[in-house]
Simulated assay, not measured.
Amino acid sequence: MKSARITRTHEPLEVQQLDIPKPMGPQVLVKVNSSGVCHSDIHLWDGGYEGLDGQLLKTTDRGVKYPLTPGHEISGMVEDLGDQAEGFSKNEKVIVYPWIGEGLCPACRSGEENLCDKPRSLGIYLDGGYSEYVLVPSYKYLVKISDELDMDAAATLSCSALTAYGAVKNAKLKPSDNVVIVGTGGLGLMAIQLARAVTGARIIALDIDDDKLKTAKESGANDVINSKKEDPVKAIMKLTNNLGADAVIDFVNASKTVETDMEFLRRRARVVLVGLFGGELKLGLVSVPTRAYRLIGSYTGTINDLVELVSLTERGVIKPVISNRFKLEESTQALTMLKEGKIIGRGVIKP
């Protein structure tokens, strides 16, 4: 089988010929139809994340090993099953839940494998979906989808939509709330759709790109603000009658964006940090208890959340925005375009 692999950080991915794995026990072999291109893949390609004082937090220090086949947003067809795999048949359409835990930590035992102490996620710690086939460790990580659901859109549910859904849930939005969505790429657009459909809150989208903001408006944002062209703090305070935002979901999560977030918060506001851009934040600590802010980190979602997302998508409540499709040989181009901000919505690789 052909797989696009990161063999060295910062260098073009290599398309290699590998043996097709044979599933054993509860394992399932999935023939990949689509694999979403995610910002997390860029961090794997770069070899790390920006930490405090600009220091690189290396992926290898987190247990990532190269060469690696990235890709954790995977849709496809069941190709083969181990002798202990149940509930699925060859050629069934599925989405893969990639956030696999070791099964024994408190998070895993409570159904939150995405927050496992020793994660084994596909496309990060195990070979993923930039490949013609992917070996899934157990049938329990598969979710069936209907024949009517677009396979490209379905792939993005397991990270882009799942991460957005988890963030919206963590924001605990009410219909009377004003929520600011910072960053209107693929995740931000999905969060706008979900917040509108599930919570009824008033949505204010914040970005520096007019084209992305136009798409955000079309996706359901009530108001949009280009922070390059106007002061976002003044604009948000004006929109909220000088009360401030009840919640912020920051899909960038860089020093500058979070510093700005803290300037337009209402008392009791929730700040949900999702993006992995990195940096550091200086806080006036007295204001945290006196204004009762809540700073919340949000990382993907549970497999039950994914099942809910499939239902929402199949009923047309949400519609993932697929803007770019790439061949396996174009994986480096896909990552480069995403890194340069040239993908509006979500890109997928089609092996």
Rank of each mutant, 00 (worst) to 15 (best):
P106M: 08
P70R: 01
G129F: 02
H39T: 11
V32K: 00
N114H: 09
E132L: 07
Y125G: 04
Y66E: 13
V136T: 06
E92M: 11
I74K: 00
G129E: 01
E132Y: 03
G71V: 02
I74Y: 00
S40V: 08
F88D: 04
V32F: 05
D117T: 03
G48D: 07
E79Q: 14
E79P: 03
L56R: 14
Y66G: 11
L52C: 06
L57H: 05
Y130K: 02
K90N: 13
E86W: 13
G82S: 13
C108E: 11
W99D: 02
D117H: 06
V78K: 14
L57M: 10
K118H: 11
N114Q: 09
S131T: 06
S34A: 13
D83G: 12
D53N: 10
I100R: 00
G51Y: 08
G101A: 12
H72P: 10
Y49T: 14
G82L: 06
H43A: 08
N91Q: 15
V94C: 04
G123K: 00
D41E: 12
D83K: 15
S110G: 03
F88C: 10
H39R: 15
E73G: 14
G51P: 04
L68K: 09
V64A: 02
N33H: 13
P67M: 11
E102R: 13
V64P: 00
E79H: 12
S75A: 14
H43P: 01
L135Q: 00
I100L: 14
W99V: 07
N33L: 09
